[in-house]
Amino acid sequence: MGKLCSDCLRWQQVASELLTNKALYSYQTEAMKDYLERYKFLGDYRLRYVFQKRWCDFIVKNYPPKQGWLYVPIPVDQESKSQRGFNQVIGLAELLPLTEVLEMKQTHGRVKQSKKNRRQRMQTKQPFNYSGSEGEILQKKVVLLDDVYTTGRTLYHARAVLKKHGAALVRSVTLSR
Results as ranks from 00 to 15, higher is better:
170 V>L: 03
104 M>K: 14
140 K>G: 02
127 P>C: 11
177 R>M: 12
20 T>M: 08
137 I>G: 02
80 S>W: 01
141 K>E: 07
146 D>H: 05
123 Q>T: 14
8 C>S: 09
23 A>R: 11
78 Q>C: 08
105 K>D: 13
13 Q>M: 11
19 L>F: 05
62 N>Y: 07
126 Q>C: 06
99 T>H: 10
158 A>R: 10
96 L>I: 07
12 Q>T: 10
121 R>L: 09
9 L>S: 11
138 L>Q: 11
103 E>W: 00
130 Y>H: 05
12 Q>I: 02
163 K>V: 12
10 R>V: 00
175 L>K: 01
148 V>G: 01
101 V>M: 07
70 L>Q: 07
73 P>M: 01
12 Q>A: 15
80 S>N: 06
89 V>N: 04
135 G>R: 02
129 N>K: 13
162 L>N: 02
161 V>A: 04
35 Y>L: 08
108 H>A: 05
127 P>A: 13
135 G>N: 04
45 Y>D: 10
22 K>L: 15
144 L>T: 00
111 V>Q: 12
19 L>P: 05
34 D>S: 15
161 V>Y: 08
91 G>T: 12
103 E>G: 15
4 L>T: 00
173 V>K: 03
169 L>A: 13
170 V>G: 04
38 R>Y: 07
82 S>D: 13
86 F>R: 04
91 G>P: 08
95 L>W: 01
132 G>W: 08
129 N>T: 09
93 A>K: 04
115 K>S: 13
176 S>E: 04
38 R>E: 15
73 P>A: 02
23 A>G: 10
22 K>E: 09
65 P>C: 03
145 L>R: 02
45 Y>V: 13
88 Q>P: 06
154 T>E: 10
105 K>Y: 12
11 W>V: 02
72 V>N: 02
168 A>E: 14
72 V>K: 01
61 K>T: 01
109 G>Y: 03
38 R>D: 15
18 L>P: 08
106 Q>E: 15
66 K>W: 12
64 P>L: 05
133 S>V: 12
114 S>T: 02
13 Q>N: 10
96 L>N: 06
95 L>P: 03
54 R>S: 13
49 Y>G: 12
93 A>Q: 06
58 F>I: 01
154 T>P: 04
151 T>S: 12
94 E>F: 13
55 W>F: 15
11 W>S: 02
107 T>F: 00
66 K>S: 15
87 N>C: 09
91 G>V: 13
147 D>C: 04
159 R>G: 09
132 G>V: 03
168 A>W: 00
149 Y>G: 01
129 N>S: 14
32 M>G: 04
74 I>T: 07
9 L>G: 03
46 R>Y: 05
153 R>K: 11
157 H>W: 14
147 D>V: 04
104 M>W: 08
158 A>E: 09
70 L>D: 00
69 W>R: 03
166 G>R: 02
108 H>M: 08
39 Y>M: 01
60 V>T: 10
